[in-house]
Amino acid sequence: MYNFQFGAGSMKRILAAAGVTAALMGSAKAETFTYGAYMAPSHPFHDRALEPLIEDFEADPAIEFNIRLISGGQLLGARESLEGVKNRLADLTFVVPVYNRTELPEINFFFQHIAFGPNVVAGTGAMLEAMYLNCPECIENYTAHNTVPLATGSGGQYHIYCKDPVESVEDMQGRKVRAVGAHARFVQLMGATPLNLPANEGVTAIQRGTLDCIIGPLAWMTSFGYVDTAPHILTVPMGYPKGLGLMVMNQDRWSNLSDESRAAVLSHMGELSARATIDAYLKPDEELLSQAEELNLHPNAGDGSFEPLFATFSETEKSELLRAASESGVQNPKALMAKMDELYEKWVVIAEETAADIELVGAAYQREIFDKLDPSSFGIK
């Protein structure tokens, strides 16, 4: 039995994770919007980020709807999330940009820029400000598909974990590794073979012998079941993805809300971005490693051969990222990268003041980004 305490664990949040309508548990609202998530109910994003938001929405009289969460891919899988919300199979969803590279070229640029911003709080802040306030094309990526990105965040630092022991780059040669985007290129540098699989399909692939390792956040170990199938963890950090669509809404639904309701929704987005990035992705890494012996996990820091390889990869990745971005239709990738670099310096200063405090980080994201969006025009048809 895994002994993880993902959030308060109240019955209200447990019911929400199981897909019970929030309206039955809170104040009456005019409508209930469905949030279709591909992640398992046990994923910390639900308990630590989305379900607190559901409670906040219930308590906010200006917000005209409740949220019903249907998780575990019952309604939308990872690859179908954007298209599903576009066509109102769900009203809200979580979007992983790499599965929508054609539809979301600018957003996928953020996702692929894994080596940018070693300070995750600052890197996420720079990405958010670049996206929402300096990149109209980024918002148009979504609105062109009848969707609106209300909150965006970053995943945790990626690590390698395998079914068999791994301590060196040499150990990785010939192995098959679940990796997408820029991480797939890094896997190739190690002499391994990247496989493009959704994270929730990796356990079955390992059990069938078609996959050896995962490169991803450690939060996946409990949410997708890798604790038992890939217990050998390399603790070397290997970058993190940005631009995750935490709360993407159908544009018709968004446009039909009142200005007051849209303003109220936006007022909660800074905290959601902070909760998701810090509580749902960064903190579970520390918690899982602290229970390594109990869970029969085998973490190790490697033999020192991974760090110089990742440093070399980081130096060359910018030019590769710019080339790939131009080919995929990003309108001005050099300017977007330069803006992120410029904003990162600002956000490093802010992050020194906030550290990883959810309340302080959320307030900073809200003040510097989401409060500057006009609810009467942002994302409106």
Rank of each mutant, 00 (worst) to 15 (best):
T312S: 15
E317Y: 09
Q331H: 11
E352S: 12
A355N: 12
F310D: 06
K339G: 04
E327Q: 13
D303G: 03
P299D: 03
I350G: 00
E317Q: 14
L336Q: 08
A311S: 14
I350N: 03
E294K: 13
S319L: 13
E307W: 01
L295H: 11
Y344L: 15
D303F: 10
K318D: 01
E353C: 04
E320F: 12
T312C: 12
E353S: 11
A324I: 05
L336M: 13
E352D: 14
A355W: 08
F306P: 00
A338K: 05
L289K: 08
G304R: 05
M340L: 12
A311K: 13
A301N: 11
N332Q: 11
S328G: 09
L343S: 03
A292T: 09
A356Q: 15
S290K: 15
V348G: 01
L289S: 08
L289Y: 06
Q291R: 15
V349G: 01
M340A: 10
L321E: 02
L297D: 07
A338H: 01
S290I: 08
A355M: 12
N300Y: 05
E320V: 12
R323E: 14
E353R: 12
G304V: 08
M340W: 03
A324K: 04
Y344S: 06
E294M: 12
A356R: 14
E317C: 09
S328P: 04
V349I: 11
E327P: 02
T316L: 15
A292Y: 02
S314I: 02
N332P: 03
P308W: 03
F306E: 07
V349Q: 12
A325T: 04
G329E: 01
E317F: 08
A355D: 15
S290L: 10
G329C: 01
E307D: 13
F313V: 07
N296H: 15
A301R: 11
A355T: 14
S314M: 07
S326G: 13
P333R: 00
V348C: 03
F310A: 08
F310Q: 07
G304S: 09
S314R: 09
D341Y: 03
G304P: 04
A356N: 14
L336N: 02
A324Q: 09
F306R: 10
K334D: 13
E327M: 09
L309G: 02
F310S: 06
E317S: 13
G302N: 06
A292H: 08
P333C: 04
Q291G: 07
G304I: 10
